[in-house]
Amino acid sequence: MSPSSTNEPERQPAKSGERIAKLLARAGIASRREIERMIADGRIALDGRVLTTRATMLTSLP
């Protein structure tokens, strides 16, 4: 039986990395909650672009 003939949905690989708030908190910038508020206020940018979601995933700080 081939994988395409089963009724199970295809599994997507898990996203690697961690949310930006967690990495910035670990780096000592601010608490994770404070960073999430800063993102919501448009005060955090990545590569010159203001973040609009706190779900941004990074593998490490740039």
Results as ranks from 00 to 15, higher is better:
17 G>T: 04
32 R>M: 00
8 E>F: 15
10 E>G: 14
19 R>C: 04
44 I>K: 02
15 K>H: 11
33 R>A: 05
29 I>Q: 10
16 S>C: 01
9 P>I: 08
45 A>Y: 00
22 K>H: 09
38 M>D: 07
4 S>L: 10
35 I>F: 02
50 V>F: 09
33 R>M: 01
37 R>L: 12
37 R>H: 08
54 R>I: 13
20 I>L: 03
10 E>S: 15
51 L>K: 05
50 V>D: 04
23 L>S: 08
11 R>D: 09
36 E>I: 11
24 L>S: 04
61 L>A: 09
1 M>I: 10
35 I>R: 00
33 R>S: 10
6 T>M: 10
27 A>T: 02
3 P>S: 14
6 T>E: 13
33 R>G: 00
1 M>C: 09
61 L>M: 12
15 K>S: 15
51 L>I: 04
22 K>T: 15
54 R>Y: 07
40 A>V: 05
60 S>Y: 07
36 E>Q: 07
48 G>N: 03
52 T>K: 11
6 T>H: 13
61 L>W: 08
20 I>H: 00
22 K>Q: 10
40 A>Y: 02
59 T>E: 15
25 A>G: 13
25 A>S: 13
61 L>P: 06
40 A>L: 13
40 A>R: 05
3 P>K: 08
9 P>M: 12
56 T>N: 04
39 I>F: 01
25 A>K: 08
36 E>V: 05
54 R>C: 07
50 V>H: 03
57 M>E: 12
51 L>R: 00
44 I>P: 06
1 M>P: 14
9 P>G: 08
14 A>Y: 07
1 M>E: 10
43 R>E: 15
51 L>F: 05
33 R>D: 03
26 R>A: 13
38 M>S: 05
57 M>C: 11
57 M>T: 14
48 G>S: 00
43 R>K: 15
50 V>N: 00
32 R>N: 01
19 R>Q: 11
49 R>G: 02
29 I>W: 14
36 E>N: 06
12 Q>K: 15
35 I>K: 01
24 L>Y: 04
19 R>A: 02
25 A>N: 06
20 I>C: 05
8 E>M: 13
12 Q>W: 14
40 A>I: 04
28 G>K: 05
57 M>H: 06
36 E>L: 06
19 R>N: 00
1 M>V: 11
40 A>G: 08
9 P>W: 11
25 A>L: 05
55 A>H: 10
44 I>V: 13
23 L>E: 03
19 R>V: 00
60 S>H: 10
21 A>F: 06
15 K>F: 12
32 R>I: 06
45 A>D: 09
21 A>P: 03
47 D>V: 12
42 G>P: 02
47 D>T: 07
21 A>I: 03
27 A>C: 07
13 P>N: 09
52 T>Y: 08
